[in-house]
């Protein structure tokens, strides 16, 4: 994009946001009780970022999402490798993974909380089991669709089993994981918030739920805004990592 076009796009973005906020602020008091007003939301964000309890909720949520996601990535790698190594195992278990992926797992959240309790550990488990399917399928596909020519060539050049894993399989998997990481991260945050929303004693999702119960829509919206900002920052960082890690790929 040319710089002048880029500037115009950025300007249009700012104008859109400003327009929505202005419209929202000028709205009648009729909707204010449940939609709140930008000024009130802004005040709530200010409180959120200064109050130590509320501020402490942010790392709680991030920690649940991160721990859940890391467990999911590790589990996905192990399961996908096992299934990719054995076509028989794959034909038996892959349908279950597909079923698990298609199922509305979020609807099972209350069940999870019943089984594992409402503490941090149960949130992590919920995040991990909800998210695991995304990296699983991207790793499984990467492993099973590795270019046969690459494998034959590596073998002819003298690669042993270990060298083939290191030079061919691991890079192929890494690139697919990196490519799906942004979706995985977004989904981890989402499920962590959801689990907190349903039953917990802390976290951003917990505060959103509390605020709604107390008809403090501005605090609920503030929570959503904060988590959205965090998600955007992480996403930008991941884009940067992706570009670095996948320089060898076609620019998409």
């Amino acid at each position: 994009m040319r710089p002048s076009v880029k500037a115009a796009v950025a300007l249009a973005d700012v104008a859109t946001v400003a327009g929505v906020i202005a419209l929202w602020q000028s709205d009648s008091a009729a909707t204010a009780s449940y939609l709140s007003k930008p000024s009130a939301v802004f005040a709530a964000i200010k409180v959120w970022l200064t109050n130590s309890t509320l501020l402490g909720y942010i790392p709680v949520t991030l920690w649940e999402a991160a721990a859940g996601m890391l467990i999911a990535l590790a589990a996905a790698t192990v399961i996908a490798s096992l299934l990719a190594a054995s076509s028989r195992a794959a034909s038996i278990f892959e349908p279950f993974m597909a079923l698990g992926n298609a199922a509305p797992r979020i609807a099972l959240a209350p069940l999870f909380l019943l089984i594992f309790g409402t503490d941090l550990k149960s949130k992590v488990i919920f995040v991990a089991t909800s998210v695991v399917f995304i990296p699983f399928f991207s790793i499984f596909r990467a492993l099973t669709t590795v270019d046969q020519d690459l494998l034959n060539n590596a073998r002819c050049l003298g690669a042993g089993r270990f060298a083939i894993v290191r030079e061919v399989y691991i890079p192929a998997v890494t690139s697919s994981v990196v490519a799906s990481l942004r979706v995985t991260v977004a989904f981890s945050l989402l499920t962590a918030i959801l689990a907190e929303y349903l039953a917990s004693q802390e976290g951003i999702g917990y505060e959103i739920q509390q605020a709604q119960n107390n008809l403090q829509a501005n605090y609920a919206i503030a929570g959503v805004v904060i988590i959205a900002l965090i998600a955007v920052i992480i996403d930008m960082a991941l884009r940067l990592i992706e570009r670095r890690a996948l320089v060898w790929r076609d620019p998409s």
Partner: peptide, 14 residues
């Protein structure tokens, strides 16, 4: 033994 293939089989990440 060396084998040069029809398709170039260079590792794309190297």
């Amino acid at each position: 033994v060396g084998f040069i293939f029809q398709q170039d089989a260079l590792l794309p990440w190297r």
